[in-house]
Amino acid sequence: MTAPTGDVWLPFPAREIEGLPDVFRYRQWDGEEVFPADPADCVFYVTPYMASSEVTVRPLAGMPAVRVVQTLTAGVDHILGGVGALRPGVRLCNAAGVHTASTAELALALILASLRGIPGMVRDQDRGRWRFGVHDALADKSVLIVGYGSIGSAVEDRLAPFECERITRVARTARTTGRGEVHALADLPGLLPDADVVVLTTPLTEDTRGLAGAGFLSRMKDGALLVNVARGPVVDTNSLLAEVESGRLRAALDVTDPEPLPADHPLWRSPGVLITPHVGGGSTAFEPRAKRMIARQLTRFAAGEPVEHTVMITE
């Protein structure tokens, strides 16, 4: 990759990012109606964070010179609908590692809050009501992590001190790591019945869309907890509703389908369901990691070196 010149679109002010190469013109755009400059001059596009798919892809058709599209999310499903407008050879990069610590931390928080009955205790506090009860501990539980990339591995890091009976790992393909065996997705039917907690950290692909459907959920043991910090459509919402409304399963969801979840959606009031509004990556850990990643990518780009975290090259 030869050293380029041109505009770089950023969702942050360039002055707030240390280490940016000085060979580019930096334009700030975080999804506003008016573009900061002519998209035709953009050579490196860092997408707005948590903007809708429609907003994110809007400039792409007017970017004939763009060479890298860099998302600030681990998943890239929200931008795939616009890559057809790009010329061949454009690199689509994700933000691998940027959300790892924050998302894994939330996954652990959701597990602990759900098992220990914290949502009910918060409601009791609002009413000034003291109710003693015995709740599940994470200790001695079997945990199944579905999606063993950087986030799945970080979830296991955070589970390690909690004396789990067993942690089982599943990814798209089987492999062996320093921690032990990683099973393939095809092994899930045999693994689900033994898990007390199932954590979804997998990216949204055609293989994982609707993965946690009726068959998947029916294989989970009675009383098990499903935790989704991946993408909403990885879970079939109607199938999950049937299970939680019967009281057979519990769920802790940072992502939903649809999203945002409408105020009248039955998931809000389903028993045993804890919902957070897609805040897995939305912590104080995000911005400094995102800015460091942007500076590293642009330094490589300016030097004519291959950028990292490429998940697709347009054809």
Rank of each mutant, 00 (worst) to 15 (best):
Arg169Ser: 04
Val76Gly: 09
Ala171Val: 02
Arg172Pro: 04
Ile79Asp: 01
Gly152Tyr: 04
Ile111Glu: 06
Ala61Asn: 03
Ala171Gln: 05
Val57Ala: 09
His99Trp: 05
Thr100Asn: 04
Gly81Phe: 05
Lys141Gln: 08
Val134Phe: 11
Asp126His: 15
Cys164Asn: 06
Arg91Lys: 11
Ala154Pro: 05
Leu60Val: 01
Ala137Val: 08
Arg91Ser: 14
Pro161Cys: 10
Ala137Glu: 15
Lys141Trp: 09
Val90Gln: 01
Gly62Asp: 15
Leu72Met: 10
Gly75Leu: 03
Gly81Pro: 07
Leu106Gly: 00
Val90Gly: 02
Val143Asn: 01
Ala174Gln: 11
Leu80Pro: 02
Asp126Pro: 03
Gly133Phe: 11
Gln125Met: 13
Val134Tyr: 10
Ser150His: 11
Arg91Phe: 13
Ser153Lys: 09
Gly82Phe: 13
Ala107His: 07
Thr56His: 07
Val98Phe: 11
Phe162Thr: 00
Thr173Asn: 10
Ala61Ser: 13
Cys164Asp: 08
Val122Met: 14
Phe162Trp: 14
Pro64Ala: 08
Gly97Cys: 06
Arg127Trp: 11
Ala113Thr: 01
Pro119Glu: 02
Ser114Gly: 06
Gly120Ala: 08
Pro64Ser: 09
Ile111Thr: 01
Asp126Trp: 15
Val146Ile: 15
Ala65Met: 00
Pro161Asn: 09
Asp126Asn: 07
Thr100Leu: 03
Arg129Leu: 14
Ala139Ser: 15
Ala107Lys: 07
Ala160Glu: 15
Thr100Lys: 02
Leu86Thr: 02
Ser153Arg: 15
Gly133Ala: 15
Val57Ser: 00
Arg169Asn: 04
Glu163Trp: 13
Met63Cys: 12
Ile167Pro: 04
Val76Met: 11
Ala65Arg: 12
Met63Lys: 01
Arg129Met: 14
Ala104Glu: 00
His135Gln: 11
Val134Gln: 13
Val155Phe: 10
Val68Arg: 00
Ala109Val: 05
Glu163Asp: 10
Ser114Asn: 01
Asp136Phe: 08
Gly62Trp: 14
